[in-house]
């Protein structure tokens, strides 16, 4: 378990992380979301022992990061923001270096390198210098060095940034497969990623936690949650008015000529009523679906300061 209590970080007068507390249990994949400069990376840097907090405590599986950093760092695999690596080394030698620094040698080191190389598919570039690698390979090398010692805790700062859609998919698969009994903390500003890999989402802005809950709970906060999008070939007379008058319908928005978005009251399901109304107005339905919620909507709502502290 990672336990963070009253953690703050100041850079001179600037408060990057403002008195946050949370716990993460094994098996959880926690996604840090937030606009740039929200304090995600700073929090991760403190979790990994790179920066020392201005105030507060971090305990990593029982090891205090301030007093027992080495023991805590042995348990953590970390991909720093931008996946830095020694550009003048080859992929093979840089993995050897990380492995040796983590105390492996001989056959075990070779076996571990072979394992991670297969896992993140680096075999084609093993002998290449890192400065000649593409961004995708560098990111995967960063992942490889993070998982080389099979850590119980994995902290990944924007692991899919700069990857193409196939590589993104691959990295997400990797995270999902790793996650069984580990603690995984991922930061991202790609919202789809949260629903794709995370079991828990945390929105940070101005160094504070604005939301902490499951991705579904996050989506449920959207105005679009359970909203119905309806497209017909030709909108019948009076349909829009009838739907607008249904109970639990807050408003109907007409997007294009023949497309309606129907918003329900918070938490209400209006599909049945809408369906009945539709049958009373004969028309050709081309599209009808219930929205799960738009994350970018919630994200904007929460992070532009309109929302109060609303931890779920």
């Amino acid at each position: 378990m990672i336990k963070v209590s009253n953690l703050s970080k100041y850079f001179d007068d600037f408060c990057a992380v403002d008195n946050i507390s949370f716990q993460v249990e094994p098996g959880e994949v926690l996604g840090f979301l937030g606009p740039n400069g929200a304090g995600k990376s700073t929090t991760m840097k403190m979790l990994t022992g790179f920066l020392s907090p201005s105030a507060g405590d971090i305990s990593v599986l029982g090891h205090d990061m301030q007093t027992d950093a080495l023991a805590a760092q042995r348990l953590i695999g970390y991909l720093p923001e931008g996946a830095p690596s020694y550009s003048d080394m080859t992929v093979q030698s840089s993995l050897e270096f990380i492995g040796q620094a983590r105390g492996f040698s001989g056959r075990e080191l070779g076996q571990r390198i072979a394992d991670v190389v297969a896992r993140v598919e680096l075999d084609s570039v093993l002998g290449k210098r890192i400065e000649n690698l593409s961004k995708g390979f560098r990111r995967r090398l960063g992942l490889a060095q993070a998982i080389l010692h099979d850590p119980r805790i994995l902290i990944l700062d924007e692991p899919t940034d700069g990857l193409d859609p196939n590589q993104k998919h691959q990295v997400r698969e990797l995270i999902r497969n790793l996650a069984q009994d580990k603690i995984v903390i991922v930061s991202t500003h790609i919202l789809e990623e949260v629903s794709a890999v995370c079991s828990r989402a945390m929105i940070l802005a101005h160094g504070k936690i604005l939301f902490d809950g499951t991705p579904d709970e996050l989506a449920a906060r959207s105005e679009y949650h359970n909203a119905i999008t309806l497209r017909v070939d030709k909108l019948p007379e009076g349909l829009e008015q009838s739907i607008a008058q249904l109970p639990h319908v807050t408003r109907v928005q007409r997007a294009e000529q023949d497309q309606l978005t129907i918003f329900p009251e918070q938490g209400q399901n209006i599909l049945a009523e809408v369906n009945r109304t539709l049958q009373a107005h004969p028309c050709q339905i081309e599209e009808l679906h219930v929205e799960v919620g738009r994350l970018d909507d919630v994200f904007r709502l929460l992070t532009t300061g309109k929302a109060e502290d609303v931890s779920a």
Binding site: F50, Q73, P84, A101
Partner: peptide, 10 residues
């Protein structure tokens, strides 16, 4: 930025 890699090793 490799300092971050280096200083988070045990």
């Amino acid at each position: 930025g490799t300092i971050e890699l280096l200083m988070t090793l045990p």
